[in-house]
Computed example of a mutant assay.
Amino acid sequence: MTHHQAEDESRFERGQKALSRIDGKGGEKVVASLADIAPDFARYLIEFPFGDIYCRPGLDLRSREIATIAALTALGNAAPQLKVHVEAGLNVGLTRTEIVEVIMQMAVYAGFPAALNGLFAAKEVFALHEEGSGTEDIARS
């Protein structure tokens, strides 16, 4: 095994642990759903965002999820990913109030339609969270 392969395994293993801790079953389902169409992309999703970026020391996971929720809300066209990350925000200690405030803040920069879409996505996650089903259903939407 070359040094590069060993390093890639390290990124992959680190990414799997981070994905599980942050996104839980919702993130794992997203990765699994790519297995039959783009398994390499599933691996990249684990290695780069989770193995490299989320594991950097400069921000804690709460701060990273605030940034991610804000960015996905501002995009306005990423509701499935936003739902997974709203659940992730709850997983890493964000309150519903903090999540709602982050999404509302995006109305200033991304417009009311993006903020409305984000609020409705969060509302759906919160309702599923209350039912105890978590992101299993969210990842499929």
Rank of each mutant, 00 (worst) to 15 (best):
D36V: 05
E98T: 14
K29Q: 14
F50M: 13
G51T: 10
I99C: 02
G58K: 13
L34K: 05
Q81S: 07
V30G: 00
A32C: 04
A78D: 01
R96I: 09
D40P: 03
V100M: 12
E98I: 08
N91A: 12
R64Q: 13
A67G: 15
A88S: 15
L34T: 03
E47H: 06
D52C: 07
N77G: 10
F12A: 03
P49Y: 05
P39T: 05
G76M: 06
K29T: 13
I53T: 12
A79V: 15
A32P: 04
G76C: 03
G26D: 02
L19A: 09
A32Y: 00
K17N: 08
D52Y: 11
D36L: 09
I66S: 01
V92D: 07
A88T: 04
A88I: 04
E65K: 05
D60V: 13
Y54T: 08
F41G: 04
K17G: 08
C55P: 00
Y54N: 12
Y44N: 11
G89E: 06
R62F: 09
I37M: 13
R14F: 03
G89K: 10
E65P: 12
T68R: 02
H85A: 10
R14W: 02
V86K: 00
L75V: 06
A79E: 15
A38Y: 00
E87A: 14
F48T: 05
N77P: 01
I99W: 02
G93E: 09
G76N: 03
E98V: 13
H85G: 08
T97L: 10
G76V: 02
T68A: 04
S63V: 13
I99Y: 01
I53C: 08
I103C: 03
S20L: 11
A38D: 09
D60Y: 09
V100P: 01
F50I: 08
A79F: 02
N91D: 07
G26S: 13
I99F: 03
R56C: 09
G51Y: 02
G89A: 06
I46W: 04
E101D: 15
K17D: 12
E28Q: 15
I66F: 11
K17Q: 15
G58D: 14
R56A: 13
L59D: 10
G93A: 05
K25D: 13
L19Q: 13
D40F: 07
A78V: 01
C55M: 13
V92R: 07
R96A: 14
C55Y: 02
G24S: 11
I46N: 03
G15P: 07
R21S: 11
A74H: 02
P57G: 13
A78R: 00
D52T: 11
A70G: 15
R62D: 10
I37H: 08
K83E: 03
A71K: 06
E28M: 13
E28D: 11
L45I: 06
P57W: 03
A35V: 00
L82I: 00
I53H: 09
F41K: 04
P57Y: 04
A74N: 06
A42V: 04
D60E: 12
L75E: 03
I37T: 14
A35T: 01
T73A: 00
G51V: 07
I69M: 05
L75C: 12
P57T: 10
Q16A: 11
L34W: 05
Q81I: 02
A67R: 11
